[in-house]
């Protein structure tokens, strides 16, 4: 464990807390994006440049864009007051959990030895396409589900017969006035 990664992880923890407790949602979203950006650095330093690129461009970039546009579309962020108590209970809860976390992880993993090796291709591309082909199919399916899901959820509300009649009446009335 080198010092740089450790400090990056500590910073990420701080940003996570900020994302949870900042009052302004846009700032929360930006804290989350910063956390993802730092995560990308950690991934890069752990010999995983491709995952780092995805983390940076898709998670820190695209998801933040999604968040910010929805926040802008709804424009009601200051009307939802978060409860006060979670902020005061949080340090205590975090400390308690952190201690338990420390003890459990130490007990379970301090004598960890990597064992067994999985099938890996000779390059990243060969591994992703050749070894994890089924996941690529799954990705395609997930993207379809997302596209159709968003289309279905944001489609024009279906009008009931009554509403249609009303709308036509209003239209007729408007034309008659002319």
């Amino acid at each position: 464990m080198d010092f740089i990664n450790l400090s990056l992880l500590v910073l990420m923890t701080g940003l996570a807390c900020a994302a949870v407790f900042l009052r302004d949602l846009v700032r929360s979203a930006i804290s989350l994006a910063l956390m993802s950006a730092l995560m990308a650095v950690v991934l890069y330093r752990l010999n995983s440049p491709y995952a780092a690129v995805f983390e940076l461009s898709v998670v820190a970039g695209l998801i933040t864009v999604l968040f910010v546009s929805v926040i802008a579309l709804t424009k009601e962020e200051d009307q939802v007051r978060e409860a006060g108590w979670p902020l005061y209970v949080f340090p205590l809860a975090l400390a308690a959990f952190g201690l338990a976390d420390l003890l459990v992880m130490r007990a379970l993993f301090s004598s960890y030895q990597p064992a067994g090796y999985a099938a890996v291709g000779e390059s990243f591309g060969a591994t992703l396409w050749g070894v994890r082909s089924l996941d690529i199919l799954g990705q395609v399916a997930v993207i379809f589900a997302g596209v159709f899901g968003v289309l279905a959820l944001l489609r024009e509300k279906p009008q009931t017969a009554r509403q249609k009649q009303d709308a036509e009446k209003a239209k007729d009335g408007g034309e008659k006035l002319w």
Binding site: R132, D135, G138, V142, A145, G149, A152, L153, K157
Partner: peptide
């Protein structure tokens, strides 16, 4: 196990949208 997770999410994401289909 990992592909199982991926397909679990495929079915789940489609079903979220379907539950809310009536809007």
């Amino acid at each position: 196990l990992f592909s199982l997770y991926v397909f679990l999410e495929v079915a789940a994401i489609a079903s979220y949208a379907l539950v809310a289909f009536g809007q």
